[in-house]
Design a protein around this nucleic acid. Sequence first.
RNA 1: GUCCCGUUCGUCUAGAGGCCUAGGACACCGGGUUUUCAUCCCGGCAACAGGGGUUCGACUCCCCUACGGGAUGCCA
Length: 468
Amino acid sequence: MEKILMNKVVTRFAPSPTGTLHIGGVRTALFNYVYAKQNNGLFLIRIEDTDKERSKKEFEKNILDSLSSIGLSPDEKPINQSERNNIYVKAAQKIYESGNAYWCDCSKETLDKMRKDQEAAGKKPMYDGRSRNLGLKQSENTVLRLATPEDGEIIVKDIIRGEVVFQNSELDDLILLRSDGSPTYHLCNVVDDYEQKVTTVIRGEDHLSNTPRQIHIQNALGYPSLEYAHLPLVLGPDKKRLSKRHAATSLEEYQSDGYLDSAILNTLARLGWSKGDQEVFYIKDLIKNFNINDVQKAGAVFDVSKLDWLNTQHLANLTLDELKNKLRPYLENFNINLEDHFDEDLLISSMRSSSNTLSGIASDLKPYYLDEIEYDDKAISKFVDDVGINILSDLKEILSNIFDWNEKNLDIALKNYQSEHELPIPKVNQPIRIALTGSTRSPSLGLTLVLFGKDKSLDRISKLLIKN
RNA sequence: GUCCCGUUCGUCUAGAGGCCUAGGACACCGGGUUUUCAUCCCGGCAACAGGGGUUCGACUCCCCUACGGGAUGCCA
């Protein structure tokens, strides 16, 4: 224990590249990152690609790119377990030589049958150690198993959960080396945590029951013990771990949907953790205020509406320039160049609260840039009737005679027309709004007209007039 | 089945025996501001899983039950 206190804190995020970076993984990485940073420690990444079947380079790339895109870059170059085979094999040998492992030649069929029998007998299915004292030598179809102590218990000291006790009798002799000689997850994981000088393991709760097994491997290898924090899982609305069935799970989907990285991180951090009544946190706030001891024990349901709200908060905190820069890629999706508007600053500042995502704002910006207008049928049928058409042609005339095209003049003209004809304001304004933007949603009308400019405004009114 | 973890408003959470007629936020529902939408402001709805203990007193401590999750792989 003293040893841990003396060492520099080192945390790691150890994903296996079998899919794109999952939002739950981002949260795990975030907590690891923040914990390391607030202790002046190191945050590392390790790619656990020992499953040759399912590991894909493209996923590894996605995970690494996603992490750095959201600001959770590691302090050292990530390592790949697939490239460190000899280290694990050496460790396995050491365990074997110390008498804490043995070769086992049980076939898959034998094992299946054993498990089935145990289940039928109402017992926990686990390897019964039948090869343990056979003194088998390594051969083509042998695996190396850890000789787990049969009695006693292992106490996992978990920062979040306290002491969790496991009886050794509940644990079976796990496989260290497969029959093809390749190392398994538990071995690699333990060896690498040691090799990378990891001090603190922060990972999902699904690993809690793996921990005593890994501690046995550590003990067999003579490694020092680690600090653990098992995070509650991120759940879907049905309380099962969040999966594609529930919602988007990969980070890149949220990013392309127009959520700010800082808002995503904020949402994830608040899932299972809180600090007073504060809701909005940036990474620097987390480094200052986060306390891993305060993390909740129960799983937390991921709620997109909270993300939406937090995103509006983070969006509102952006400076105009920041917002413009963040908007650009989303605008490009519509082939829009932000600078093509004659007063993009006024435009963006008028439209910045139109939607709670970047992609939503970009989409709302389309009428201001593109010639094609998408008319909202409902709005058309509600406001563009005979009366609406008359109003439009009247206003077209009136507006064309306004030469100093500014918000104040336009508002006055609109107001005069409306009071002269004793019309309710929306009756007058909505048809114009629809003519300009295709819908009834826009900033105040005088401003909207300014944003479109005189020519375009009149054009669009004509266009709607012709259409009807 | 067995082992492990968990259980406060629909959701995220505050609550470390009296501060709780249980607080905040999101969502939702009303109302207001706004020429529309959004923003913003105000208000409302809504929870301690159940049962036993311990205690003068339990959301808080202990036990049981129920429910949920995780683990039980030559996956990680």
